[in-house]
Amino acid sequence: MSYFDKISDIYDHIAQGTAMDAFEEYYAEDVTMILEDGTAVEGKDANRERENEFFSSVEEFHGIEVKGITANEDEGITAVESTMTVTFKGTDEPMDLEQVAVQHWDGDKIDTERFYGTQTD
């Protein structure tokens, strides 16, 4: 399976509400995820907890629009531009989370992922 196919599968999982299944399948145990503010979260356990906290803060998932996916198959690097629309618990209005995520792969697993993004209401 190509890196393009793998990253496409991850975003298909997000759209279907099964993002954590993709997380378990595609992320390395020692993954580093770098958040929009530059904070690095090290390890699959810490990132699993962070992801679960995010999803538990969502009242309603309205969908995700993938605007572009690219893959450098030789270097094992993928990138995705997307907008996710969610309503967070305790709020009344949906919010658009615009993001570019860049993944560096080691074989079949993502070992580093960096997020660039904004929140708009």
Results as ranks from 00 to 15, higher is better:
M1S: 13
M1N: 07
Y3K: 08
F4D: 05
D5S: 15
D5N: 15
K6A: 13
S8G: 03
S8Y: 05
S8R: 06
S8M: 04
D9K: 14
D9Q: 05
I10A: 01
D12E: 13
H13G: 05
H13C: 07
I14L: 01
G17P: 04
A19P: 05
M20P: 01
M20L: 05
D21R: 15
E24C: 01
E24S: 12
E24V: 03
E25Q: 15
Y27D: 03
Y27F: 13
Y27M: 11
A28K: 10
V31A: 06
T32K: 05
T32S: 12
M33T: 09
I34H: 01
L35R: 10
D37N: 10
G38Y: 08
G38V: 04
T39N: 13
E42R: 06
E42A: 02
E42Y: 03
G43Q: 04
K44T: 04
D45H: 00
D45F: 00
D45V: 05
A46I: 02
A46Q: 11
N47K: 03
R48S: 14
E49D: 10
E51H: 04
E51G: 02
E53C: 04
E53H: 01
E53R: 10
F55P: 00
F55V: 04
F55W: 15
V58E: 06
V58W: 06
E60Q: 15
E60I: 05
E60G: 08
E60Y: 12
F61W: 08
F61Q: 05
G63L: 12
G63F: 05
G63V: 09
I64R: 07
I64H: 02
E65R: 11
V66D: 00
K67L: 07
K67Q: 09
G68N: 07
I69P: 03
T70S: 11
A71V: 07
E73V: 12
D74I: 08
E75N: 11
G76D: 07
G76E: 08
I77K: 14
I77A: 08
T78L: 00
A79K: 03
V80Q: 01
S82Q: 05
M84E: 14
M84P: 02
M84W: 01
M84V: 13
T87K: 15
F88K: 14
F88L: 13
K89Q: 14
K89P: 09
D92C: 06
D92G: 15
E93P: 06
E93A: 15
Q99P: 02
V100T: 13
V100L: 10
V102I: 12
H104N: 08
W105V: 07
G107N: 10
G107S: 06
D108N: 14
K109M: 15
I110A: 13
T112M: 12
E113D: 10
G117C: 00
T118H: 00
T118P: 01
T120F: 07
T120M: 09
